[in-house]
Nucleic acid binder design. Structure first.
Lengths: 222, 222
DNA sequence: TCAAAAGTGTTTGTTCTACACCCATGG
DNA sequence: CCATGGGTGTAGAACAAACACTTTTGA
């Protein structure tokens, strides 16, 4: 078995999900970066960069994510490692992560700093043709997100610190792409330990709704 | 962001599961390789090797698996990529796979070729201290196997081509570490499309049991 | 006082689990 | 003919989906 590592480079990319306002419902979106050099110059690609010798892959994912969005994610998990020979003109093994960003932070950052250079948000259901095998990667990340939302309370990572059950349900509906019964949804989440009720209420158009907070510890049990 | 890939090497390792005979019940075991050079010379480690420039990571996993066991697996899936800075004296990113081997092939290969050099099988519940972070990796692979066995019909990959429902149930019991109700187990698997009944029967000690065959296609639906 | 969302309760159907029971074969 | 594993049936628990209904607010 040969030692050939010198000619293989390791990259780290991240599929970053966040909810962004839309006339009707919130839309699930991801940021893409316009490539400024060959190969695929001018095309959109997932944010990422080369793995540095002095950092672990997880740290590299957090770093490249921060460089792209100037934000720290509420959730960050390894997705998959793509290492086919022909996925890039040069030999690159990409360790890909996926992340959730709280929508309020994204909005705040956006209005303060303006959109970072060469970064733009796209609806996950209307992505352009991406560089490399990034369309395939984004599809897979979306599949994993929808999957995980089904059996964990992870979707709260897309919302601000406090939120109503309706807001959370709308997140689930945006991600899963289907309607959920409000009363059953309530029962399900009140049964799990994942949410802790607060004493505050969101007083909007109608009857005030209790605000909940996400309980990260209780979600450890898968 | 620096281009530092030259100093990072990519390795591929595989956690290979197979069932091996035991006085009472079958035991779930994995093959380990004794290291013949530094670091960790003389210690047991997961089979693996350097990723070659001309092969994809999946092919590399299959190749190193074949070099170790002289067998092709009935199941091979990427597990995780371990890339912490301090997991090895030199900077190594390991793409780890996990695999299932049919027990009959292992037995056949073993009796014909004898044990390959420096390779030995260990019970997953009694592993020695391994090189690098390989104990941690093996634990994780075992967790994933048990998890996956819960919701897919993958365990048939540990058995020969044809098998009785009792044999399959014993595999599940070995992997999961608990007893299953024979009648419920039967119903569950007859309900899924994963198994196809044959017209043959295993005629042993008592009433003959129908032989089944694993239906790979039907298992595609997750 | 009405519309609409918050929140509670009930009904029904499905799936899981435990276990009682019959069947077929080797000894 | 009997012990043993192969195989079928079924009652009860646990869970999920559908939906009727009550409560509380803003307008």
């Amino acid at each position: 078995m040969g030692r050939a590592g010198d000619e293989i480079r390791v990259a780290v990319s991240t599929v970053i999900f966040s909810l962004r306002q839309d006339p009707d419902s919130d839309r699930l979106m991801i940021p893409l970066v316009r490539r400024t050099r060959e190969p695929y110059e001018g095309m959109w690609a997932l944010p990422g960069g080369w793995l540095d010798v002095a950092e672990g892959v997880h740290e590299a994912a957090a770093r490249t994510l921060e460089e792209t969005t100037a934000l720290t994610p509420s959730y960050l998990e390894q997705l998959y490692t793509f290492g086919e020979v022909d996925r890039s003109p040069t030999r690159v093994v990409s360790v890909v992560y996926w992340a959730l960003l709280r929508s309020d932070l994204v909005d705040a950052q956006r209005s303060v700093a303006g959109a970072p250079e060469n970064v733009e948000w796209f609806d996950v259901d209307a992505l352009p043709t991406l560089a490399f095998d990034h369309n395939h990667i984004a599809e897979y990340a979306l599949w994993r997100l929808r999957n995980k939302v089904g059996y964990s309370r992870i979707a709260a990572g897309l919302l601000p610190d406090e939120f109503t059950l309706s807001e959370l349900r709308e997140v689930y509906e945006s991600v899963l792409g289907r309607r959920l019964d409000p009363s059953n949804f309530r029962r399900l989440l009140e049964g799990s330990e994942a949410l802790v009720p607060t004493e505050s209420f969101r007083t909007g158009k109608h009857r005030p709704a209790r605000l909940y907070r996400y309980n990260a510890e209780a979600d450890e049990a898968l």
